[in-house]
Design a protein around this nucleic acid. Structure first.
Lengths: 144, 144
DNA sequence: GTCCGTGCAAAGCGTTTGCAGCTTA
DNA sequence: TAAGCTGCAAACGCTTTGCACGGAC
């Protein structure tokens, strides 16, 4: 797994430095997607600028992918390190639930071939209330 | 249609002012979703701050919805003014193609009920190459 | 030893806030 | 007329850029 990481760096002519490793491990160890602000805040030893540059490189090398949770961008490990999936986002407590749906993935194929379009990536996200928050709310707006 | 707009304002205790009307009509007349920067740039008579405040109000009143085209947020009219849909986004030329898929909408129902989640809104977007750009590109990355 | 990468400082932008004057209902 | 809205100025915070030093290969 980390072998795979160093390969990516070697193959693309980049150096696997300590700060880059640290950011990778930090994201890997989190069970939630993280914002850049999170990573900066929780890694005070590392310069903010280096974190920006690292994330930007990781995006380019497809080591991480951006998950947008409505208002901001969060990052999590990408495909070789973390299988492709989507999220249910609770707008009240912020809880993220992973969705793994083959049917959704095949729908991407369907929709793109219908439109003569070559898909490279896709994003899908459902916002609403998780089961826990649902019980705490008196009236339920719904407009999916 | 504009009747409906003034109703929304009346019912929620807001005033339908000239600048708000102008922003509404501007978005309505566009056949593409617009960024705030677009709206600011193309409406030099209106103050930038007022445009921010107007868009923010429109979002709150569900007059517009945000479409994220990968890196930035774009806005287009929401449901009563423009039926719900999603987009194929060409990452080369920026072209947006609307997708109207009942199957996708029912999948939202399915995925949320499976997870005991109450959906409020959802976002879906496919990035890739449109048929036109496809013919111009020698090699084709694909990772849906 | 040579580049690439890092850290620091500072600039750059998009977005938000405060306030006085104007507009709308 | 009274409340809400607009425009201007300025603050704010996230992100990017420039540059010299330090570390990886």
């Amino acid at each position: 797994m980390d072998k795979e990481l160093s390969n990516i760096f070697n193959d693309t002519g980049h150096r696997l430095t300590q700060p880059r490793m640290a950011v990778f491990n930090f994201i890997k160890s989190s069970d939630l997607p993280l914002s850049i602000a999170d990573i900066v805040r929780l890694n005070p030893a590392m310069d903010k600028v280096s974190i920006y540059r690292t994330i930007s490189l990781f995006k380019k090398l497809h080591i991480v992918v951006a998950v947008n949770n409505g208002w901001k961008q969060l990052y999590e490990l990408a495909s070789p390190f973390n299988p492709h999936h989507h999220h249910l986002v609770c707008t009240k407590c912020g809880k993220l639930t992973e969705i793994h749906s083959k049917k959704l993935e095949s729908m991407v194929e369907e929709l793109t071939s219908e439109n003569d379009f070559h898909p490279v990536s896709h994003h899908f996200e459902i916002n609403g209330l998780c089961s826990n928050c649902l019980t705490l709310v008196p009236d339920l707006p719904s407009q999916p």
